[in-house]
Amino acid sequence: MYDSGKIIPGLLIFVLLITLPIWYNNLSNAGQVKTPEPPDKGMLMGFTFANGQEHPSAAEMRAKHMEHLKIFHANAVAKLAEQKDKKMPTMSCMMCHGSKEQFCDSCHATISEKKVPDCWECHQKP
């Protein structure tokens, strides 16, 4: 073999980089992700919104909560514009899901999801 003094170390660095997740996770002892607490079934069971709609399932919410929030937000804004008194609507997810740390951050931190919309520029962090 020629130039093994340069090629072998180079190859070794490459293999170390490619297998980074393997040794990183085993060294950091992270092993398994902390699975976020399953939402309390009793609470979700049969919950209906004021407009008669049922609360979507937890799996549905985990995968698509942004789409729901978008519609929810647009409706609320439209409703607010119609209202004479401009009183802020009080119905909100946060009435039940009372903690940002528990309901938003537990997943968002695990997967380091940084593309969060600017909800908290207006809404108070619960």
């Binding site: 996770n25 992270a30 092993g31 398994q32 992700v33 549905e60 995968a63 695990t110 997967i111 999801e113």
Partner: peptide
């Protein structure tokens, strides 16, 4: 997005690496 639960997918990925 239906059925794309990233936390579950991360569990799969971490399980593979460990």
């Amino acid at each position: 997005r239906t059925g794309v639960d990233i936390v579950a997918i991360k569990q799969l990925a971490l399980g593979l690496t460990t």
